[in-house]
Design a protein around this nucleic acid. Structure first.
Length: 729
DNA sequence: TCCATTGACGTTTTT
DNA sequence: CGTCAATGGA
């Protein structure tokens, strides 16, 4: 067997990982070290060299994007159909298992997936029904509590609340929530994983079947696994399975949502015969960027240890810009991007990364002003839009009328005279009898519990859905979708919105019909016994689709540091490098490794850059309405200053900067007018607080102009001219 | 039932 | 400061 196509493109460490004969393999793959390549080549190695049946391999990722990429690249390398391979996300695989074994898992055949918004709505309703104060018991927090418990594998009965009243209350909500979900056949994301784990625990025959079949398990982004995923994996591996995991403890940035970096270390303890391979050669960034990143991350304790290196060029120093305020920062970044583009580079080679989503606003503003196209990651996705979810809710009810989440969503949308009062009555009835709303609605009418008008309206809704159900039974998915939109008269509900918004909503609905039309039942879903409709709805929940915006347009990329993981750009800006913002204040205050996770986040951000990395911070930033002064991020101090180059605006005393858009200083009396500098270099000045000094330099423009003064008593300081109130002597 | 005003809140997010 | 959701009057 000629294996050169599998091994030639690999370096020595990668080769060792791909060809390892040890039972288990742990690949510590640094950023940009070719971990996906190793995973794919291992997969191909197993099949082509070790002659493992494709049916015996399970490859697990965290995102649909990664799963898609893996399947794509695997089919290229293998040159055969990848259909028999199990490649998917943890959730996708759990979902598939539950579909195939719904009986053993104790689920109804037509169970539905609740996305996180559905889950929150349901919880809000439960909290209200319990007569609790929503301000004190926010649904968001209940959701957080329940998901965290489920991520740890805990049901309400497992939770020790002792005499802690707050925990006891959340446990009660958790129980009530479970009742609702069980009654309606609803499964949230965390539940998919938990049920899949319980399937292993409670159905030894099922577990045994998969243990025999899936002898090779490949796991990507292992540092992101949570407790339940790890437990699930361990059980599946059993005594004979072979596990190949790829991860990077230095890139673990999701601890706050249950990911356990410790799993990387536990892996060596819990699994026997683990070969550890480090991938440290980096194919992405310049030597300088890597050196700075290595220095930063070395401040973390208890790492597995890894040092990135490259054969490539050293590259430029890391730029550091000390902005006066956040406007100045945005102006600077956009100016740099303008230059980059003027030099003939593409806009989509540049990315602006920030810690919090709110920071994107200013950059958007300045990019807009400069007419530079941009794209912000992380907005609402297609299947999360209200109009899409409304339309899908009708379909969900057709499939499973017990789906209370869907019922509540559309029972009065468009308005059909089923007001709050009527719905409350239905809820009370449902709760009393422990039945879904749909059945309660029927019961209320039969028992004449509703006023004539309300009864009529509710009957109308029931008739509408039963009518749809009977008429559309044999229609194609696309026609069903269109039929539901037409019959429900959903469009009329959006008519009251501003015309522009309505237009996009209607357009999205047309797009939804197109998507339904184009939908092909995936073979693995067919195998699991899913109907086209079931499969379509599950896909809508499990992969909510791309965020808006065309990826291939030539756009500057704006995103949080978190969503940048896995991506790379020639030019990267990390903005807001201030203590309190990044690292975030809450991470500084809280204990439990939060600060180290922030440092890893910074490391992730830095290692996104191929050619040029630019860090910036603002000395003054308006946050929550008030101005805050902060120190530059401690992370900057953790990088060798020899690798950094401080950038100052290109302003000199000889050729004064003429602002493109002259603006008067906001406060009167402080600034200077026109192009005239109020002071000469070397001018002796007096400051209210710092006393006497000498002007050393100017920088910045307009109201942001700063002046450097050597004070006799206070030393050298940069001051904002507009606020400094300096007087010439 | 709808719109406007008020008030609370202000990490990070995929499935 | 800016956003979003909840509330209350018309």
């Amino acid at each position: 067997m000629d294996v050169s196509h599998l091994l030639d493109p690999l370096n020595e460490a990668q080769r060792r990982a791909v060809t390892a004969e040890d039972r288990h393999v742990l690949v510590l793959a640094g950023a940009g070290s070719g971990k996906t390549r190793v995973l794919i080549h291992r997969l191909a190695w197993l099949i082509q060299v070790e002659h493992v049946s494709p049916l015996g391999v399970l490859a697990v990722t965290f995102t649909n994007k990664a799963a898609g990429e893996m399947r794509e690249r695997a089919s290229q390398l293998l040159q055969v159909s990848t259909r028999p391979l199990w490649i998917g996300t943890f959730h996708g695989i759990a979902h598939r298992l539950l579909r195939m074994h719904w009986k053993e898992a104790g689920l109804p055949e037509a169970f539905q997936i609740l996305d996180s918004e559905d889950q929150q709505r349901l919880l809000r309703r439960i909290i209200r029904e319990e007569g609790m104060d929503e301000a004190h018991w926010p649904a968001r927090q209940a959701q957080w509590f329940i998901n965290a418990r489920k991520d740890e594998g805990e049901r309400p009965r497992h939770i020790e609340h002792g005499d802690h009243p707050v925990t006891a209350t959340w446990v009660r909500i958790y129980e009530r929530y479970e009742d609702y979900c069980n009654r309606g056949g609803l499964v949230d994301f965390a539940e998919l994983l938990l049920r899949a784990h319980e399937l292993w625990l409670e159905q030894p025959a099922v577990l045994d079947h998969y243990r025999r079949r899936l002898q090779h398990l490949l796991i990507d982004e292992f540092q992101d696994t949570n407790a339940i995923q790890y437990a699930w994996l361990r059980m599946l591996a059993g005594d004979t399975g072979r596990v190949f995991v790829v991860g990077d403890d230095d890139q673990s940035i999701y601890g706050w949502r249950g990911a356990r970096v410790e799993n990387v270390q536990h892996f060596m303890r819990d699994f026997p015969d683990v070969a550890t391979v480090r991938l440290e050669q980096n194919y992405r960034s310049t030597g300088t960027i890597l050196e700075a990143a290595n220095a930063l991350i070395s401040h973390n304790q208890g790492r597995m240890g890894k040092k990135l290196w490259t054969e490539g060029p050293e590259g430029h120093p890391v730029q550091l810009y000390a902005a006066y305020n956040e406007q100045d920062e945005a102006r600077f970044v956009v100016e740099q991007i303008r230059q980059w583009i003027d030099e003939g580079r593409r806009a989509d080679e540049a990315a602006i990364l920030y810690r919090t989503t709110a920071q994107s606003r200013l950059f958007e503003e300045y990019l807009l002003r400069e007419s530079i196209p941009y794209r912000v990651y992380g907005g609402l996705r297609f299947f999360e839009r209200v109009e899409i979810k409304d339309a899908l809710a009708y379909l969900r009810l057709l499939l499973n009328p017990d789906d209370d989440a869907a019922f509540e969503r559309v029972v009065n949308k468009p308005t059909r005279a089923i007001g709050d009062k009527t719905v409350s009555l239905l809820r009370a009835q449902a709760r009393e009898s422990g039945i879904p709303l749909w059945q309660a609605a029927g019961a209320c009418i039969d028992q004449k519990l509703l006023a004539a008008r309300a009864a009529n309206a509710v009957q109308g809704f029931i008739d509408l859905l039963t009518g749809m159900h009977e008429r559309m039974r044999d229609w194609t998915l696309g026609n069903q979708m269109q039929g539901v939109i037409d019959d429900s008269k959903l469009a009329s509900h959006y008519e009251k919105e501003p015309p522009e918004r309505m237009e996009t909503r209607l357009e999205n609905l047309r797009e939804l019909v197109n998507a339904a039309d184009a939908f092909v039942l995936p073979p693995e879903d067919a195998d699991a016994g899913l109907s086209e409709l079931q499969s379509f709805l599950s896909h809508a929940a499990l992969e909510a689709g791309e965020t808006q915006g065309e990826q291939w347009d030539d756009c500057v990329q704006l995103m949080t540091l978190h969503s940048a993981k896995g991506l790379e750009f020639p030019l990267v800006f990390i903005a807001g490098m201030e203590d309190g913002l990044f690292p975030h204040q809450r991470s500084i205050e809280e204990s439990g490794g939060r600060l180290e996770e922030e440092r890893r986040l910074c490391y992730v951000g830095m290692t996104r850059a191929r050619e040029q990395l630019c860090l910036s911070y603002a000395e003054v930033r308006r946050m929550h309405g008030s101005e805050s002064h902060s120190r530059p991020s401690r992370f900057i101090d953790e990088m060798p200053s020899s690798l950094l180059r401080e950038i100052r605006p290109r302003v000199s005393a000889e050729r004064p900067y003429v602002p493109a858009r002259p603006s008067a200083p906001k406060r009167s009396g402080g600034g200077f007018k026109g192009q005239e500098w109020p002071f000469r270099l070397g001018q002796a000045v007096t400051h209210r607080k710092f006393g006497e000094g000498t002007v050393l330099a100017f920088e910045g423009s307009g109201e942001h102009t700063r002046v450097q003064v050597n004070f006799d008593a206070a030393g050298v300081k940069w001051l904002v001219l507009a606020y400094a109130h300096l007087e010439a002597r």
